[in-house]
Every structure is written in C-alpha cells, then in structure tokens.
Amino acid sequence: MTLEDLYRLLRSGHVQAQGVLDTLDVPLLVLDQGMCVVTANPAFLRAFKTSRDDTVGHALFELGNGQWDIPDLRQLLSSVIPRAAAIVDYEISHAFPDIGERTFLITARKLAHPDGNSQQILIVFTDITKRRIDSAAKDILLNESRHRMKNLLAVVRALAHQTRTEGETALQYRKSFLERLDCLAVTQELAMAEADGVDFETLVRQTLQSYTDRIALRPGANPPLANSQVQPLGMSLNELATNAVKYGALSVPDGSINLSWEVEHEGERQVLSVVWTEENGPEVDQPDHEGFGTGLINHSVTGALDGEVDIAYDKSGVNVRIRIPLDRNLE
C-alpha cells in the first residue's frame, strides 16, 4: 500500500484506515482543525513513549507537558491548513524530555473529509537522528582523511625538495628520491598497520630489505616501538644504507656492514642502542658539509626520537651509534 492509497482511505473515512495506520511502522498522527489529536498509531506511541489515553483527544501542543510546542512545528502546521498544501520532509530538531535530542523529517498533509466540512491533517514522522549522527561522523572522518592526505603530500614535497640536486643527474636524483619515497611508504604502512606498534627487528628487516645480503644483523632484545618512532627510525636506517652504497662499505664489492642492537636499562629508563659498523670499505673522510642523509639522521634522532647519535668517520669505515629512549610515546 502506498501513502497515496492511505490518504484515499483516510479521505473516504473507510474503516480499514485505522487498521492500516496501526500496522504502519512509521509514527503517524491525525489532527483535527484545532490541532487536537484524532488518531495516534502504535508506532507513534512507542516512539514517543506515551499512551493512547495521554495522546488522543489532547491538543498536540499540550501533549507531554507541552513538549510538542515547537515554534517550527507550529509555523509548519499553521501554514498547511490555510494553503491546503502538503509539506514533505520538513526537518525539525528538538530535545524531547523523555527520548532526548531527536531530528525528524515531518511530512504533513491536509485530508479532506467526505462530509466536506471538517479538515484533518495527517502528520508522518521520520526519525533521522541516527542518520544525522552517522553523516556527521562521516564528515569528521572525511575531513580527517583530507587533512592526512594534505599532510602526506607535504611530506612527499619535503622529500622531493630536500633530495640533493647539486652535481646529480636527473636519473640519480630520481633514484634517490624514489628510494626515500619507497621507504616512506614502507614505514608509513608499518606505523599504521599494527595497533600495538611494530617491533624494531621488523622495522629493520622491512626498511633494509634490499641490502640484507650485505648487512649482517646481530639482533638483541626486540623492543616494540611507538608509532611516532617508526618513521624517523626507519628513514634514518634507510639513509645509513643509502650513504653506505654511495660513499661507504657498500660502494665496493668486499665491503660489509654489521648492524647490532640491544635494549639497555638506565635506572627506570629503557634505551635502544643501535650500532652500525661498516667494514672493508674505502677509506672515509668526514664530509665537509652535512648532506641530506646525515642531516635527516641527526634531525630524526635528536629531534623526533629525543635520542643521541654519533657518526664517526673512522679510517676503517663509518661507525654510527644511535641511542633512543623507548619509554616515551607522543601519541
């Protein structure tokens, strides 16, 4: 049965109409010209936690201690009667004493009675409170992901901007940039994937996967990392490897790297101590200026990780010591 059929039934005053109203799931009221309730269906009584006796025969605006005396609703109904217009999906939000803050779409329509004298109004209430809350939550989520996307673009821009151009061919630039971008993607994935955070060994294996045949891992205790530590630490490891390929032990066939780590206890504090030792590479000298790699490592470890880093350019190869506190969590 369509609403149209229902209106026809109601207009004809057919006895079936009452039965139809009763079975409908949607809260409905029929009002007389004086805004007095003629009919309230069970769905209405349920939705507004009221009884038939308290509703039928009472003026709408006096129901439930005047909880329906809503200026918008008054305005709406007073405009329906004189103009004989149907009003469809008019949104009203109101705080009801018994059922709380609700948002309804109200459809009101004048019903012509067969006797031609009395005029009644049928009001249909559609509760869209949950729909509104859901859509607000979706808006927040959308806004959040838009914000994150912009942030990520800003990060990519920072990488592109900081990747060295002086003395590099476009091909070299692209290779360096893409390696960093790949590392960013891997660490981003790791930081987001695990709710309890990723452990250090997993981070090492993931960020150094293209170098594993040349880097000997000497694992110690395997601490979990805070999400905020994953990217700065992963990117730093990647820069160490990149520099080793360009200038250090991995730039020659015989060179190799030892990567060991341990968790040390300093009183209450736990410190992750990482040692990166390059061997059998070319003789290295302290560079005359800070490149992107060492700059990023210094910035990440002392800034984002609140740790310490020492990069020694020994004759036998680069030796890097990184110490970061584990018992902190910014998020």
């Binding site: 942030n151 800003a154 920072a158 990217q231 990117m235 800034g303 984002a304």
Partner: peptide, 27 residues
C-alpha cells in the same frame, strides 16, 4: 611542526634563505 620530515625541510629551507631557526618544536 610535529612531522619530522616537514620540519626538517622547513628548517633547511629557512636556513638556506639565511635565517636562524629555533626548533622545530614538536609539541
């Protein structure tokens, strides 16, 4: 700036332009 890469880029860009940078403070 709380993001370490954005902070790193901003710091270096400002330094290259000749300014002195304090930070980045992350919190």
């Amino acid at each position: 700036e709380d993001d370490f890469l954005i902070g790193f880029d901003l710091k270096r860009t400002l330094q290259e332009a000749g300014h002195r940078v304090i930070g980045p403070a992350r919190k």
